[in-house]
């Protein structure tokens, strides 16, 4: 994720490589997550904000994971970015608030992050909406397409 996109100010006053030494263990955790996914189908979710990381370490992790085939954006209570990393099955899910500040960031090891799936409640609401819209259009003799346009 390019720095400018989040608008976060960085104070690059620290020098040092892998200061907390948490980068490697975290990547191993991701590897175990993949093993688990392959063997049992169980998913792993890692909250990046719960781990002590030095100023540049989160970027380092993101750089190593890179970007793969899927980039999805969703707009629900602010933007969210769901990116499949170059390691298939390893996803980076970043939630922003209305002011484009990151409110949480997770690494999910799964075939598809839950937040991307259409939710039953929303599907039911969509069904009622479409039904109502169709009824309205029959009454007014106007097509749904015209109405929404």
């Amino acid at each position: 994720m390019p720095e400018s996109e989040t608008g976060a100010i960085k104070f690059n006053i620290q020098i040092g490589d892998e200061l907390t030494q948490n980068v490697k263990p975290l990547l191993h955790e991701v590897k175990h997550g993949l093993e688990k996914l392959i063997e049992t189908g169980k998913i792993t979710v890692i909250d990046l904000r719960s781990i002590p990381l030095a100023p540049n370490e989160e970027d380092k992790i993101l750089n190593i994971l890179g970007q793969g085939e899927v980039v999805a954006k969703l707009d629900a209570l602010g933007l969210s970015e769901v990116v499949e990393t170059k390691y298939t099955g390893v996803w980076l899910v970043t939630h922003y608030n209305d002011e484009d500040h990151i409110i949480s960031r997770f690494i999910e090891v799964t075939t598809m992050p839950e937040i991307l799936c259409s939710q039953t409640e929303d599907i039911m609401a969509a069904y009622s909406r479409l039904t109502l819209d169709l009824e309205d259009s029959l009454k007014t003799n106007e097509s749904v397409v015209e109405k929404s346009a």
Binding site: D47, A76, H95, F106
Partner: peptide, 27 residues
């Protein structure tokens, strides 16, 4: 939330941020 037009996805996002801020396991 629903009466304000907030989707279930939005709600799940809220819950994810809540778990994160309460230092709870994502599980």
């Amino acid at each position: 939330l629903r009466s304000r037009g907030i989707s279930r996805r939005g709600f799940l996002k809220f819950c994810a941020a809540t778990a994160s801020m309460m230092a709870m396991s994502p599980a």
